[in-house]
């Protein structure tokens, strides 16, 4: 699994309310519509200009706040290919993986990547390549990669339950 994309860079503590405002949490149910509001209260340009496989690079504690899964869903459906950060809030980390959105925790890369540049990430090797060089990060465990490869937790569970039933 690897991707190549343009970088959108943000700071520390990007919270779930600026990623996907609470006022939409029960009124918007279509993931494609969620994508139109991605990062609305942080960067209104983002949802209009983001391209498929673009990569978000941020500071510490990305996704802090609410457990709302739409924060991961809206970014996934906006086309985001991966998020690189110094650290992630724990519920967001789980939600992103469960939505099939890969995450990279790598402090050095987050510090050295510039906004707008194109970077490549190889998830199995644990390598991020950018203008300033190649940075390594611990690859995600097999079990987590399995969820990502199946496209998220729901298709993953569906596959497991089918296998158990021998279908």
């Amino acid at each position: 699994m690897s991707i190549k994309g343009k970088v959108w860079k943000y700071g520390d503590d990007v919270n779930t309310d600026v990623i996907f405002p609470g006022k939409y949490t029960y009124t918007i149910t279509d993931p494609k519509e969620m994508a139109l509001h991605a990062l609305e209260d942080l960067d209104p340009k983002f949802a209009k200009e983001v391209k498929k496989e673009d990569i978000i690079v941020a500071g510490r504690n990305f996704g802090c706040g609410s457990s709302r899964e739409q924060a991961a869903t809206c970014l996934k459906y906006a086309g985001v290919g991966a998020i690189v950060a110094k650290s992630f809030s724990r519920i967001f980390f789980r939600n992103a993986i469960n939505q099939g959105l890969p995450l990279v925790q790598c402090k050095e890369a987050a510090e050295n990547v510039s906004p707008g540049e194109e970077i490549t990430i190889d998830f199995e090797k644990g390598e991020l390549s950018c203008k300033k060089g190649v940075f390594n990060f611990p690859p995600l465990p097999e079990s987590v990669l399995g969820i990502l490869k199946d496209g998220g937790l729901i298709p993953h569970i569906k596959k497991i339950l089918r296998a158990e039933k021998g279908e």
Partner: peptide, 28 residues
Amino acid sequence: DSHTTTYGAFGAFSTGIGRSEVASIWAT
């Protein structure tokens, strides 16, 4: 819900998870 941590006040281990995970627990 992220504020599920509240129940620790009674000595429970309680934490928030996402929607897909709740669906998955209902199933498995």
